[in-house]
């Protein structure tokens, strides 16, 4: 196992950040930690990168214990903290060179590994990091985290605050890194990114709700979800919320995801009810559960 976490708990003063977290990540796996801000993702990352000591539980990274062998772990992991922690007043090249030096290596030595990523920012290598766009900062930060050829890569919310194009490119880069045998633990608040991981853990309020492949996780959703649509969104939500048989009502883009508490639910009944509420252009269709639906159901 590349990462093994057993019953980790952590609290600050009287606030519990993590309670009884356990999971394992196989070598070369792309594992996603999916949850909103404040779920405990960053605390978990800091424990696994030896920056914090858990109150309870054990963990090993590349078979090194996070407490006893913290020095070995520090030599073998790459870490990209939540904010792209770069030296804003150093140029792209200087940043990369600095991180290479402190890890006792050179850019040339591991250029193969970062080549794909670095060529995209190489034209700007004389530019100060502070003047880069969000997407370029993200690529530079990843290059810096990779420069010493780590066995395990920790990426704490690498796509937060980055536009969709850069996000997509970033995930493509991760997929390529995976083929080089690097284990990647990545956290994100975006549910839509979950599908890109091999396996995911849904996390909220310091607890893991579920661990599985993205495909399996949505299968666990217990109910049939209906896409409901009508001309007046607000009235639709209001009406569904007071419908006596509703189980859950969540706006989902242009639709409302509706589940019913009855087993023998007939959409026509709902349509009739909505008509009595003066709603027009009503449509009700069965739809697939998403990871977000599952998350909300589990977090309820």
């Amino acid at each position: 196992m590349s990462i093994s976490v057993q019953n980790i708990s952590k609290s600050f003063k009287n606030k519990t950040a993590l309670s009884d977290i356990s999971f394992e990540v196989k070598e070369g796996e792309l594992f996603g930690l999916i949850g909103p801000d404040g779920a405990g993702k960053t605390t978990l990352f800091r424990i696994l990168t030896t920056l914090l000591i858990p109150n309870k539980g054990e963990a090993t990274i590349a078979n090194f214990d996070i407490i006893k062998d913290y020095k070995s772990i520090r030599n073998n992991v790459g870490y990209m903290p939540g904010r792209f922690s770069l030296y804003q007043d150093l140029t792209v090249e200087e940043n990369l060179e600095f991180f290479a030096t402190i890890f006792g290596t050179t850019i040339e030595e591991n250029y193969d590994l970062i080549k794909d990523i670095y060529v995209q920012i190489e034209p700007f290598k004389k530019r100060r990091a502070g003047k880069l766009s969000g997407g370029m900062k993200q690529k530079l930060a990843l290059s810096c985290a990779l420069i010493h050829k780590p066995k395990v890569l920790f990426l704490d919310e690498p796509t937060t605050g980055v536009d969709p194009v850069s996000r997509k490119e970033f995930w493509e880069m991760l997929k390529r890194l995976q083929t080089k045998g690097i284990t990647i633990l990545v956290s994100t608040p975006y549910m839509d990114e979950a599908a890109l991981c091999d396996r995911i853990a849904l996390i909220q309020d310091g607890k893991i709700l579920e661990i599985d492949t993205p495909r399996e996780i949505v299968k666990h959703y217990p109910k049939t979800i209906y896409n409901v649509k009508a001309a007046n969104m607000y009235l639709l939500i209001e009406s569904l919320n007071i419908y006596k048989h509703k189980y859950s009502v969540y706006p989902f883009g242009e639709f409302v995801h509706y589940t019913d508490s009855r087993t023998n639910f007939n959409p026509e009944d709902l349509k009739l009810y909505l008509k009595t509420k003066n709603l027009k252009n009503i449509s009700i269709e069965i739809t697939q559960a998403t990871i977000e639906d599952t998350f909300m159901e589990l977090a309820k």
Binding site: P81, G82, R83, S85, F103
Partner: peptide, 13 residues
Amino acid sequence: ELGTMEILLVSPL
């Protein structure tokens, strides 16, 4: 403040 201290700590320095 910048968060770079985290990276320095997680380095062999």
